[in-house]
Computed example of a mutant assay.
Amino acid sequence: MRRLTVFLKLTAVLAVAGAALTVQAAPAGAATTGYGDCPAAYFCAWSDDGAEGGMSKWEFDDTNWTDDGMHDDAESVANNGTPGTFDDVQLFFDVNYGRGSICVAQGETYDWSMADNEYDSHYWTSGC
């Protein structure tokens, strides 16, 4: 009888330890993707449609997206800028604000009209 009691206690301890290991092995939290991942006061671009994939984010103007790993790679964008004087974002096909393209108003997202994701710079502006 004593062996059975020790066996049951040992089994219970191992079960609890196994559960603890399982919890520790699980990821701390699945990475979320989506437009909600763009922080307040930022303009964000993702490498895939639907705000999926790699994300770059900017709080200020950027003359060259190549430095941020988003060179000709944006498939979706979001303007989560703070409402104010410069709250819209003008996108450009080339570095140094060359060949203007779409303007993304504060609070807007673009996905389907990304013109072959050939964007390389942007600046904050007072209106689209």
Rank of each mutant, 00 (worst) to 15 (best):
M1C: 10
R2C: 05
R3N: 08
R3M: 03
V6E: 00
L8I: 15
L8K: 09
K9Q: 13
K9P: 02
K9N: 10
L10Y: 07
L10V: 13
L10I: 10
T11D: 04
A12H: 03
V13H: 07
V13L: 14
A15P: 00
A15I: 07
G18K: 05
A19L: 13
A20N: 01
A20W: 04
A20K: 01
L21Y: 09
A25K: 02
A26D: 05
P27N: 05
P27A: 03
A28Q: 11
G29H: 15
A30V: 06
A31Y: 13
T32Y: 02
T33L: 01
T33D: 04
G34N: 10
G34Y: 09
G36V: 14
G36S: 15
D37G: 00
P39K: 04
A40R: 11
F43N: 00
C44A: 07
A45D: 02
W46P: 09
S47D: 14
S47E: 14
D48L: 15
D49R: 14
D49A: 15
G50H: 13
G50S: 14
A51I: 06
E52P: 01
E52R: 13
E52F: 07
E52M: 12
G53E: 11
G53F: 08
G54F: 00
G54L: 00
M55T: 08
M55G: 01
M55Q: 10
M55H: 01
S56M: 14
E59R: 07
E59K: 07
E59G: 09
F60L: 09
F60S: 12
F60D: 13
D61A: 06
D61Q: 02
T63N: 13
T63I: 14
N64K: 03
W65Y: 15
T66A: 14
T66F: 10
T66P: 01
D67M: 11
G69R: 04
M70H: 13
M70V: 13
M70C: 11
H71D: 15
D72T: 09
D72Q: 10
D73G: 05
D73M: 08
S76R: 03
V77N: 01
V77Q: 01
A78D: 05
N80T: 03
G81L: 02
P83V: 02
G84I: 01
V89N: 00
Q90M: 02
L91D: 01
F92Q: 07
F93D: 03
D94Q: 15
V95H: 03
V95W: 02
N96L: 03
N96K: 02
Y97V: 05
G98S: 06
R99W: 09
G100C: 00
S101G: 15
S101M: 08
S101E: 13
I102L: 10
I102T: 06
C103L: 07
V104W: 06
A105T: 07
G107V: 11
E108Q: 12
T109R: 12
D111S: 11
W112F: 11
W112A: 15
S113T: 09
A115N: 10
A115Y: 08
D116H: 08
Y119T: 05
D120M: 12
D120F: 04
S121N: 07
S121F: 07
H122I: 04
Y123P: 00
W124R: 09
W124N: 02
W124D: 01
S126D: 11
S126K: 10
G127W: 00
C128A: 04
C128S: 03
